[in-house]
Each structure stands twice: as structure tokens, then as C-alpha cells.
Write a protein that binds this DNA or RNA. Structure first.
Length: 220
DNA sequence: TGCCAGGCCCTCTTTAGGGCCTT
């Protein structure tokens, strides 16, 4: 029977393994040009499984283009009935807490997240992992590194829905977990931490093997 | 109506340019 101190350690370790995978649908590519988030989707991954989900449309206060309507399937009529962005972001800020974040092409979602949070007087501090950068290192021979391509490339389950926030965040989570498992088996790693995954996306492709060798149990 | 950006990576690079990825 573990002591209370040991229980505490175990609880903290498990909580530390939790992270949030998120995805924004937006009215355009640049918040600096006035583009706004129109939908947020996210999943909480704990102990290798999707434990909780968050999804909401967000009324951007302006009409979106026909291109975005076609691209996402989100219409102006749907957004006219959607909750205000501020309220959604307040709920989302509570949902993510201080857990590490993951997104596919994180630089895009990070900018929208930070701008939308700043509009409600909040800011995040946690690290942001990028499944796109990690995938470029782990699957250098994939046809390309778009989320949809990688899902098919790895044969991961999908309901065929892309470009909706919750669906994309779930698939990004599956991809992230798949990459962890592939690293674990291919490189004989005892543990694949969030920091290892983030670091992998930041190093040059010629340094990948040397980088992973540092974490290997018995070398390879 | 038509068009828009930013971050990261790679290489035929670093005093730069182009491709990829996100909506």
C-alpha cells in the first residue's frame, strides 16, 4: 500500500502526463488582419486516451467569406446563433488550465489563441507542442505533412470529417499518440515525454538520430 | 471582387529565397 506521499507523487505524475490538443477554425489566416476564431475544438488527453472534449462555435461579430463557409462547412447562419467569443474563450481558458498544448502547425493556432485570450484579458504560459514539426522528423517519407495526409498515411481512424475544430483536434491527438508509440518502438525508448516531442520538432533533421539516442534504453 | 500572413524548415544558405502548413 503506497504511503500518502507516494500517492501524491503518483497523482502528480499522472496529471503531468495530461495535455490538451486544440484546433481553431477561423475567418482567415491572420489575426493581425482582423480575422477571428469562429470555432474552437479541443480534447484533453490523459494517460494516452482522450478523456474530455470541448467544442463551440464562436460568433465573430462579422460575416465570414464564402470560401470559409465552403472550407469549413460553418455558415454565417450558424454563427449568427453562436455564443459570443468572449464567453467561449473564458470557458476554454478554464478548460485548458496550465496543461501543455498541442496543435497541428501550432504557430497558427497559437497566434489565434493568444489574440482571443488577450481580448478577454487573459494569457497563457504553458508550452505549445507542434504535431506538424514532430511529424516532419518522425515521418520524413510521408507524401506531405498535412493533417489529413498523415492520418491516412498512418491508417488512423477517422469519420471522414476534416476542417471542423473538434474532429481535427481528435485526429491530431491520435496522430500525436501514434508518433509517441512509433518512437517508443522504433527507437527503444522507455518513455516519450512531452518535452522530447517538442524538442524533436525544433532540431534539424540531420540531428534526429543523435537526439533520440540520448533517450534510448539500450542504444540502437 | 479579389486578395491577404506568419513561422518554420531546407538548401543550390547564412549579406536569401522559396516551399510547406494552417483558415
Amino acid at each position: 500500500m503506497p504511503s500518502s506521499a507516494a500517492k501524491k507523487v503518483i497523482r502528480i505524475q499522472r496529471e503531468d502526463s495530461a495535455f490538451i490538443v486544440l484546433d481553431f477554425e477561423t475567418s482567415g489566416l491572420s489575426p493581425d488582419k482582423g480575422h477571428r476564431a469562429i470555432e474552437i475544438g479541443a480534447v484533453l488527453v490523459r494517460e494516452g486516451k482522450i478523456a474530455e472534449r470541448f467544442q463551440s462555435l464562436m460568433n465573430p461579430g462579422r460575416r465570414i467569406s464564402p470560401f470559409i463557409e465552403a472550407y469549413t462547412g460553418i455558415t454565417n447562419q450558424m454563427l449568427s446563433n453562436a455564443p459570443e467569443a468572449a464567453g467561449v474563450m473564458e470557458e476554454f481558458f478554464t478548460f485548458i488550465g496550465d496543461k501543455p498544448l498541442v496543435a497541428h502547425n501550432a504557430s497558427f493556432d497559437r497566434r489565434f489563441l493568444d489574440v482571443e485570450l488577450s481580448r478577454i484579458g487573459c494569457s497563457r504560459r504553458q508550452e505549445f507542442g507542434c504535431s506538424l514539426l514532430a511529424a516532419r522528423r518522425i515521418y520524413p517519407h510521408a507524401p506531405n505533412h498535412r493533417l489529413e495526409t498523415l492520418i491516412h498515411y498512418k491508417g488512423l481512424p477517422t469519420d471522414g470529417c476534416f476542417h471542423r475544430a473538434l474532429a481535427d483536434s481528435e485526429m491530431t491527438a491520435r496522430l500525436w499518440l501514434c508518433m509517441i508509440e512509433d518512437l517508443r518502438t522504433t527507437y527503444n525508448l522507455r518513455e516519450v515525454s512531452f518535452d522530447l516531442m517538442c524538442g524533436l520538432g525544433k532540431i534539424g533533421k540531420k540531428k534526429v538520430v543523435a537526439y533520440l539516442k540520448e533517450f534510448s534504453c539500450h542504444g540502437f
